[in-house]
Amino acid sequence: MEKLLLRIKITHNLTNDDVREIAMNIVDAFVEENLIEDNTDTNDDTEFAFQDIIHKKLNEIFNIKED
């Protein structure tokens, strides 16, 4: 697993912004499927909460530090 992850990181040279974009896309897919409410034009932070959890987890997996 570690070797695989290292290879992914080396191959794609992922940055913190890249990982955030992956998290955004996953959350957008949840919104598309109505699993998470669309927070556009609201004060509700639920989408960001999901995004942050996914982002943090992926950063841990890929050993990427937030800026």
């Binding site: 913190n16 912004d17 974009e21 955004m24 896309n25 957008d28 598309e32 800026d67």
Partner: peptide
């Protein structure tokens, strides 16, 4: 692409996100 991190005097102050699949 979709996400950009903005720093002021080297310190992160803002993230800007443009969602491709949302309005």
């Amino acid at each position: 692409v979709e996400s950009n991190t903005i720093k002021y005097k080297g310190k992160m102050v803002l993230e800007l996100q443009l969602h491709t699949f949302k309005a």
